[in-house]
Simulated assay, not measured.
Amino acid sequence: MNIEYRRRSISDASRPDMPYRADIDGLRAIAILPVVFYHAGVSGFGGGFVGVDVFFVISGFLMAGLVGGELERNEFSLIRFYERRIRRIFPALFAVMIACAVAAWLLLMPVEMEYFARSLKAAAMFGSNFQFKRKPDISTSRRRRSLCCIPGHSPSKSSSISSSRCFLSQSIGSRPGG
């Protein structure tokens, strides 16, 4: 088996002893496919979380190699370790948060925007798991209460479409800038 080794450039300049592993990058790419297929609604991929687990195991393997090498050379610093994680993850995190906030402002109704704002705040504070455990789905209680407040509508299945249309038409006029 021939494994290609080459040096990485910009992002991994701090790891001169750790060569690029194309095979590991390929495994990580394969690991995210179930996640993408699950979120795309492709049937047969109900366990997208398995891909996340595999991706984390591979990432843990890479980080353990990095930390192990630094420990052997007596160069390990916990602060430097987290600094590299922050430099790598934060730019993408903030770009996604900004893009989602713009999309939410343009696409969501006020009740959904309120839920999104709480989710965004939790993500910024790295507390999303706590937020989503507490409020698992906007489509449950709060949204139903909002629809029930529209005169003449009840939360029964037969009236859910007309309730949504009524709620949508009233909400568009109350939206800032809209």
Rank of each mutant, 00 (worst) to 15 (best):
L27S: 00
Y82N: 12
P136V: 09
V42Y: 06
D53F: 14
Q131M: 08
A31D: 05
E83N: 13
P151I: 01
L71T: 06
Y115M: 03
A92N: 08
M97Q: 14
A92R: 05
G44W: 08
F126S: 06
Y20E: 10
A117I: 09
F130A: 15
K135Q: 13
P34T: 03
F132W: 15
F61N: 01
F49H: 12
S146L: 04
I58Q: 01
I150N: 04
R143T: 09
G60W: 08
M63E: 14
L66A: 09
Y82L: 14
S59M: 11
F126N: 04
K135M: 11
G47Y: 12
F45T: 02
I150A: 03
L107W: 11
L62S: 08
A123G: 05
M125Y: 04
P110G: 06
G69N: 15
P19W: 08
V102N: 04
K135A: 08
L120D: 02
S154T: 12
Y38L: 00
S128I: 12
S154N: 10
C148F: 07
S141M: 09
S43K: 12
G68Y: 13
S77T: 01
H153N: 09
D53G: 15
L108K: 04
R87C: 02
D137Y: 11
S141C: 05
R80P: 00
G44H: 06
